Amino acid sequence: MALNVLNVDPQTFHRVERCGHPLVVYECKLGAVPCGMFVEGTTTAVSAHLREHSIPGPDNASTSCPWASCSKTLKRGAMSRHILTHLGVKACCSVCGVVKCRLDVLRAHIRSSESCRFAHADVVYGPEGRFLVPTGRTVTAAHQVQ
Rank of each mutant, 00 (worst) to 15 (best):
V24W: 02
G41L: 03
S69H: 11
P34K: 09
E52W: 12
C35Q: 02
V33P: 01
L74K: 10
C65S: 07
D59S: 09
E52D: 11
E27P: 03
E52A: 01
E40P: 02
W67A: 05
S54A: 15
K75I: 08
P22A: 12
T44I: 07
P22W: 15
M79K: 03
E27Q: 13
P58E: 15
K75D: 09
V24L: 09
C65L: 03
C70G: 08
D59A: 14
C70Q: 08
G41D: 02
T63M: 15
E27V: 06
Y26T: 06
D59Y: 08
M79W: 00
K29F: 14
C70R: 06
H21S: 13
A68T: 10
N60V: 01
T44S: 13
S69M: 03
L23G: 00
D59M: 06
P56C: 02
W67G: 03
A32I: 11
N60P: 00
R51F: 09
L50C: 12
T42E: 05
H49K: 01
G41I: 03
L50I: 11
Y26D: 08
L23R: 11
S54V: 11
M79H: 05
E27A: 13
A32L: 14
P34A: 07
M37W: 08
E40A: 13
L30N: 08
A45C: 07
T73R: 13
E27N: 06
P22V: 10
S71C: 13
G77P: 06
C28P: 00
E52Q: 14
S47N: 14
S62C: 10
V24T: 04
P66G: 00
T42Y: 04
A68D: 15
T73H: 06
I55D: 10
V24C: 04
V24S: 01
L50S: 09
L23I: 06
A78R: 14
I55L: 14
T44K: 09
I55V: 08
G20Y: 06
R76G: 04
A48C: 04
P58L: 15
E52N: 05
G20N: 08
A68E: 15
G57N: 05
Y26K: 09
L50H: 12
I55G: 10
C65W: 07
S54E: 12
G31Y: 13
L23Y: 08
D59Q: 10
Y26W: 09
T44E: 11
G31A: 09
V33C: 00
P58M: 14
G41H: 01
G77E: 08
Y26M: 13
Y26V: 09
C65K: 07
G41W: 01
C28L: 07
S64R: 07
D59V: 10
V33M: 04
P34I: 07
A61S: 12
G31I: 10
D59K: 11
T73I: 13
H49D: 00
T42R: 03
T44D: 13
C35G: 01
R76E: 05
C65T: 03
S54L: 14
C70E: 11
V25E: 10
